[in-house]
Each structure stands twice: as structure tokens, then as C-alpha cells.
Design a protein around this nucleic acid. Structure first.
Length: 321
DNA sequence: CATCAGGGCCCTG
DNA sequence: CAGGGCCCTGAT
């Protein structure tokens, strides 16, 4: 799919806004879904079954954020569509979210004070729609990162859409209504194992029950969590991923998986293994409605350090690639 | 060579 | 609520 028409607009996120640490996530596994360079980001935006090429460029500073957005499409876009795309970008990258309270409130916190300076203006962000992120959640389950990467790429090459714009080549996720036409056997040939069944069952649910991400966003977080936990194959960890990344909720911190437990025990308590209940209670008591963001700052930092070449022996042991 | 757990979840007892 | 099974892979 070649996207040749393009539209540009300058956007002004609420300050403080840190482009690079918001957009790019060192803890995430690499995929063909996005391309990042310092100050630049490309991805394929899916919105109501349509695909648009998105390029974002940092043209400002943390205190005076300014982002150049270029939207690529196959056909001429109406003003209304452009407006909807921009609204969606603002939501997914938290352009309008005010973090000044967070920055102020924890400026003397033993763990966060340095990180709030180092990553000042880092927001949550997610380039995927709910369905795509759900697919990623399934691809992460019960395996090592290397295999997740392999399964993701194979699935995208077979059923995703290859999108070309701005001299970049990126993949977009398949639509649920297209995937359900594929047989479980064929999916299994891509070595996704028992996930084949999950992909099909979830896609069926999305088609049949017409799960509407925009409608879900209007519900209170507890209710959303309850709804997404009903999805077959979605348990506490996948629900956490969706709630934090697709729905941008900072207030619900109720689950820590075993490998996260090891890393957070070390980073927050400097201990080998603290019970997850203790971690959860501590974080909630200390950071309240900012709990998820607080953990995000801690989490992203250690992976940024790793990305920049710092060797952290105990961490390498926990990140099984 | 065989065995096993991995960036979970469902189902059963 | 504990524990077995799930697909496949690479580490041991």
C-alpha cells in the first residue's frame, strides 16, 4: 500500500512534554510496526479499518513542545477525517495530559526525584489501536522475547498490511474480520502454537460483538478492566498492558508478573525478591493516582540505561532474549 | 539425546 | 486457590 498524499500540521502538547522518552520505549520488543530515530517517529495508524502513515518530528523543547505531524494517505482526506486522526494522535501520545502535578509532587521522592529531572515530560504512549495491542499481548504470553519477535514478524508478513510512505516501509496489523477467514491450521504453520486459537477467538469476538475502543474509553477504569478480562486469553497481565498502554490509566496498579517482580524488587527495595503484594501496596500508598506512571519512570529508566550500553549484569539475567 | 521453563491463561478439582 | 497443560524454542 503506497501512501502518497500528505498533510502536515504543527501540534503543541501540554508542557512539559518529552518527545523521545514518550515516543520510544526501550523495554518494548523491536518490530516492523514502527521506526524511531532521535526526534523522529513513523508508524501506520489504524483508525476504523483505514490505514494512515504517520510521521512525527520533534520541533520544540520539553518546556515548549512543538511536534510536526505529517499524515500520509492513499486518497484525499476530508477536514473531518483529518480532525479525527489528529484527535486520535493526541490521545495515544497524551498531548493534552498535564503532568506538572506529578513532577512537582514527587520532586523530593527518594526514587523519583532524579528520574523526574532526567525524563521530565515523559508521558505514556501507544501507537497501536486496542486490537493491535491485544495481539501484541497474546504474542508476549508464555514465551521469550526472541520468539515473540519471530512470531510477530511472521504474522505481519503473512496477514498484516505493508505500508510505504516517506520512503519508509512499515507494517500495520490485520483486521479481525480478515483473520477469521484463516484456518487454525494455517496459523499454526507460523509457529504461534496455541496462540492460533486465541487469535481466532479474539478476532471473532471483535467482529461479532463489535468491540468499540472509543466507547470503552468512556467507561470508568474498573469497568474497562472488567470488560477486557472477559476476553478469552486476557488475564491479569494482558489486562494490565491494555489498561496502561491503550487506555492510559495511571491509577490502577494491581498486578506484577514474576519477571517484573524480580526487577522491581531490586529497583525499589534493593532486595532480591519482595512479595508482589508488598510491591503493589507500597507503590499504591506512595504514588496513589500516579502509581503506574511512577513505575513507568523506574522501569523505562533501567532499560534506557541498558540501551545506551550500560552493562547491568543482574538485569541481563532477568531479560531472557 | 532429553528435559524444561519462558515478558500467561484457562480449566479442573 | 493450587496445579497441570498448552505450542514451540533454545538453554542446559
Amino acid at each position: 500500500m503506497n501512501l502518497t498524499k500528505n498533510y502536515t500540521k504543527i501540534l503543541y502538547p501540554k508542557e512539559p512534554y518529552n518527545f523521545d522518552s514518550t515516543i520510544y520505549h526501550p523495554p518494548h520488543y523491536p518490530s516492523k510496526l514502527e521506526i524511531y530515530e532521535t526526534g523522529k517517529y513513523w508508524f501506520a495508524l489504524k483508525l476504523r479499518r483505514k490505514i494512515y502513515g504517520i510521521k512525527m518530528e520533534d520541533r520544540g523543547t520539553i518546556e515548549n513542545p512543538r511536534i510536526k505531524l505529517t499524515i500520509f494517505s492513499k486518497f484525499v482526506l476530508s477536514k473531518e477525517i483529518l480532525k479525527k486522526i489528529i484527535e486520535e494522535i493526541k490521545f495515544r501520545f497524551e498531548f493534552d495530559r498535564d503532568l506538572s502535578e506529578f513532577s512537582k509532587k514527587f520532586s523530593k521522592d527518594a526514587i523519583l526525584s532524579n528520574l523526574i529531572i532526567k525524563y521530565r515530560g515523559m508521558h505514556g504512549s501507544c501507537s497501536n489501536e486496542l486490537y493491535g495491542l491485544l495481539m501484541i499481548g497474546i504474542l508476549l504470553q508464555n514465551t521469550v522475547v526472541k520468539r515473540t519477535v519471530q512470531m510477530t514478524n511472521l504474522m505481519l508478513e503473512h496477514y498484516g498490511t505493508k505500508v510505504n510512505f516517506d520512503n519508509k516501509e512499515i507494517y500495520a496489523f490485520w483486521n479481525p474480520e480478515d483473520l477469521i477467514k484463516i484456518s487454525e491450521e494455517e496459523l499454526k504453520n507460523l509457529k504461534v502454537g496455541y496462540r492460533a486459537k486465541l487469535f481466532l477467538r479474539l478476532s471473532n469476538t471483535f467482529v461479532k460483538e463489535k468491540i468499540d475502543e472509543l466507547e470503552l474509553r468512556k467507561l470508568p477504569p474498573k469497568k474497562i478492566k472488567k470488560e477486557i478480562l472477559k476476553l478469552y486469553g486476557v488475564g491479569p497481565e494482558t489486562a494490565r498492558i491494555l489498561l496502561h498502554e491503550a487506555f492510559h490509566f495511571y491509577g490502577i496498579f494491581e498486578h506484577v508478573s514474576p519477571w517484573q517482580q524480580k526487577i522491581l524488587s531490586k529497583l525499589i527495595f534493593n532486595k532480591k525478591l519482595v512479595p508482589t503484594k508488598k510491591i503493589i501496596n507500597y507503590v499504591n500508598r506512595k504514588y496513589g493516582k500516579w502509581a503506574v506512571l511512577a513505575v513507568k519512570y523506574i522501569w523505562e529508566d533501567i532499560f534506557w540505561q541498558r540501551e545506551q550500553g550500560k552493562k547491568i549484569a543482574w538485569l541481563e539475567k532477568e531479560i531472557r532474549l
